[in-house]
Design a protein around this nucleic acid. Sequence first.
RNA 1: GUGGGCGUAGCUCAGGUGGUAGAGCCCUGGAUUGUUGUUCCAGUUGUCACGGGUUCGAAUCCCGUCGUCCACCCCA
Length: 431
Amino acid sequence: MRTAEVAGVGEFCGQEVLLKGWVYNIRSSGKILFILVRDGTGTIQCIVEKASAGGELFDAASGLQQESSIEIRGTVSEDSRAPGGYELQVTGLDVIQIAEDYPITPKEHGMNFLMDHRHLWLRSSRQHAILKIRAGLIRFIREFFDNRGFICVDTPIFTPSACEGTTTLFETDYFGDKAYLTQSGQLYNEANAAAFRKVYCFGPTFRAEKSKTRRHLIEFWMVEPEVAFAELDDIIQLGEDFIVEIVGRSLESYRDLLTDVLERDLAPLERVQPPFPRISYNDAADILKKRETGFVHGGDFGGTDETVLSEGYDRPFFVHRFPAAIKAFYMQPDPEDESLTLSVDLLAPEGYGEIIGGGQRIHDLELLKRRVGEHGLPEKAFEWYLDLRRYGTFPHSGFGLGLERTLAYICGIKHIRETIPYPRLLNRLSP
RNA sequence: GUGGGCGUAGCUCAGGUGGUAGAGCCCUGGAUUGUUGUUCCAGUUGUCACGGGUUCGAAUCCCGUCGUCCACCCCA
């Protein structure tokens, strides 16, 4: 007998197959049992009729409980009454284990309870859908860069110094020395860009920010491209092409999961078409001033500021040329106004906010040295970084995209904690 | 970290103004040939978060502690 997976069960129509999986739900209606079996690739309704299956099989099947592990044999048939279109007329059942008192029932649960049972919660259809789309999104991201001649060059997770503020760094003991978990691969990316021209890194990053919001994770994944000889406009264009492609491919590949399981309204995603609006920080500030959001010119945007700005657009939009005072030390000054930087953020609509941050980097050695000093950073730790400006310096730009925020946006889910298998939050390190 | 809400059965919750607790789900038994989070009948389940106070008496009122959820600051 053929062993099949639920995802490809349609190919075995009319044949008897063996499925291995778990009981997702079980219903009975007198002399007929409906067992919903999931095997990780999908779910299928399995039918046990007392008359045709016999008492022994029927009794064994009635004793199943949610999440019991089983090997089940039966004949595949197409039936419009079955969810998914196919069902299994059961001819045999081997129980691996009866799962007793599975904590997550098909009824309502509180968030804390679900988070405590995250290791089990992943089996439910909604979490399964989100993480399946996550896997696809990671693939689309890699393929976007790989297909354009970018080289994936990994950057270290243990780092000797900070690239932004040290208050948000996780400090660890490194054989008696201090090491920090990476916040960004960017500084290394710049070295890699000098070697490979177009590079990206993609991995976990860590920020010890004491903020608990629906948009923050302590540990999250970020993809960061860096391009030699690219200037601000080039990197904005790259960001636009990138978002259009990864949103488009997600929509194309996961339309059913998005609508049926996650109940995502696809219209806003369908509108993710070029060109994206590009507004300057100063123009954005003028808009906010008229709306009295409490925004102070020169400061960063708050949550309501981002919402107000996004109301003006039907798709993601870029805000560029932020004040130097609120950006990292390596940002290239705007030649037309030295108080501004050649920086850019991409804000997603529907309240999802910033998903991309980036810009053009300083390539002048003296200016960069000065900025390191102004930001109170130890020049010694940055010697290797300054070397990039000593030996064949070059204009270059890049950005970082937060994987989980982007996934939350694509899936239309409110809280970022559902977008990563095991979220690390301010008050949660387990499971 | 700041502000607000909530901690009662394994889960989700109800318990005006104080009198030692209840409903649904889950589970067990029974009924129904096609269910779609099946429905119906019967049954089992408690340190009312913890500590202190007021009171004849506290799940209920007061104080504190802890946990949790939501919002804000910050960032991707």
